[in-house]
Simulated assay, not measured.
Amino acid sequence: MKKIALLLGLLFTALLSTAQNTHCACCTEDHKAFDFWLGAWEVTLPNGNKAGNNLIEKIQGGCVLRENWTGANGNYTGTSYNFYNAGTGLWEQLWLDRSGTILKLKGQRTGNQMILESDETVNEDKSVSVQRITWTLRDDGKVRQVWEVLRDGVSAQVLFDGLYSRKE
């Protein structure tokens, strides 16, 4: 009888362990909202020149999208970590690059666009600036990324405009 109880206990523990390991904490539709950006990409500028290469992959059990950017000349690199914060209901990005730039963004997907913005910065002239990056999924499967500076809510400068085409 003891052997049967021990066997049943081991079987129950194994089943419980398997159930816990198959649970996906980040498999909700909200967590998948930025999946259209996943993949290996060649990025071009509006004039057709190559801007660089980007690899977007899921890590940490699918809870984080990691971006690995390399500019066309290979000298400029950067990494971002993107995740859905279930506590706030927003997507967040932390960008870090080899020049020391740090950018923190947050926002959400609306339709075919992921729109993330920085916190407001008050400028010397008392105007308010926000950095906004918009990723737009196009019908052809390409993704357009526009990084702009808004001043008092109006686009004042485009810092980057790139078209992502999947590598084959």
Rank of each mutant, 00 (worst) to 15 (best):
K2Q: 12
K2S: 10
K2W: 04
K3M: 07
I4S: 05
L6N: 06
L8R: 02
L8K: 00
L10I: 15
F12D: 03
T13L: 12
A14I: 04
A14F: 01
L16I: 11
S17F: 10
T18W: 12
A19I: 04
Q20L: 11
Q20M: 09
N21Y: 09
T22V: 14
H23F: 13
H23R: 12
C27M: 06
T28W: 07
E29W: 07
K32E: 06
K32F: 03
A33D: 10
F34A: 14
F34N: 02
W37R: 11
L38I: 13
L38W: 03
G39L: 00
A40K: 08
E42K: 12
V43C: 05
V43N: 01
T44G: 01
L45E: 00
N47W: 00
G48H: 00
N49Q: 14
N49S: 15
A51F: 04
G52Y: 01
I56D: 05
Q60V: 13
G61E: 06
G62V: 13
G62I: 12
C63T: 03
C63S: 03
R66N: 12
E67K: 07
E67Q: 14
N68W: 04
T70Y: 05
G71C: 09
N73T: 15
G74F: 08
T79K: 09
S80H: 00
Y84L: 03
N85L: 01
G87C: 01
T88H: 08
T88L: 08
G89F: 08
G89T: 13
Q93R: 07
W95M: 05
L96H: 05
D97H: 03
G100H: 11
G100W: 08
T101K: 06
T101G: 06
L103M: 10
L103W: 03
R109P: 00
G111E: 10
Q113T: 14
I115R: 08
I115G: 03
D119K: 07
T121Y: 09
V122H: 06
E124F: 09
D125A: 08
K126H: 07
K126N: 09
S127D: 05
V130K: 13
V130T: 11
I133N: 05
W135N: 08
W135S: 08
T136A: 04
T136G: 02
L137P: 04
G141F: 00
K142Y: 00
V143F: 02
R144K: 15
V146T: 14
V146C: 04
V146Y: 00
V146L: 10
E148A: 15
E148P: 01
V149C: 01
V149M: 14
L150G: 07
R151V: 15
R151P: 02
D152F: 03
G153T: 05
V154E: 14
S155V: 15
S155G: 06
A156E: 15
Q157P: 04
D161G: 01
D161E: 09
G162M: 02
K167H: 05
E168G: 11
E168Y: 04
